[in-house]
Amino acid sequence: MASTEKHIIVRALYDDDDVVLDAVKTVRDKGYHVHEVFSPFPIHGLDKAMGLAPTRLSVAGFLYGLAGLATSIVMTYYMMITDWPQNIGGKPSMSWGLNMPAFVPIMFELTVFFAAHLMVWTFWMKNKLYPGAEAQNDDPRLTDDKFLMEVELKGDKEALTALLKESGAIEISEA
């Protein structure tokens, strides 16, 4: 939201999700860079229209799941086979491979546990969301029914303003 020294950000407010989506496409077609879009709900196709790279959160989730699986294998191997093997119900702990079927539920649960929780932590950290953080939107209407597009100014300011007006913006300001 904060404008850097080099760039001036022009903010255009919209009152419809379809209009803002079209505006993003129009503005980008004219060669402007869309700095940010705030919306009260996810707009389908907005990330592609803005040219955002796909998120790699699910790849991270897969790796976290593998870490959970590995943890469960190491844990059951250490605790049940090497550290204190016991003969439980006439079923001695011979080797991890032979006992493995009994560990499947634990392996599954820990895979899910690691994948889910670490993904959520990653989500909070990447988005800089934490309890008590200042609101990232400075206009309270943006969680209600208004949509804000921030465009980096390039060249003539009048031209950009006109373009934004034409695209359906209801308010235009400079940040």
């Binding site: 907005l46 955002l52 998120t55 959160l57 989500f123 609101a135 939107n137 969680t143």
Partner: peptide, 17 residues
């Protein structure tokens, strides 16, 4: 609310998550 503001990238991650 953790400071949520509804940025496009955040919604993208939100939906994937």
């Amino acid at each position: 609310s953790f400071g949520w503001g509804g940025k496009a990238k955040h919604w993208q991650r939100f939906e994937e998550l």
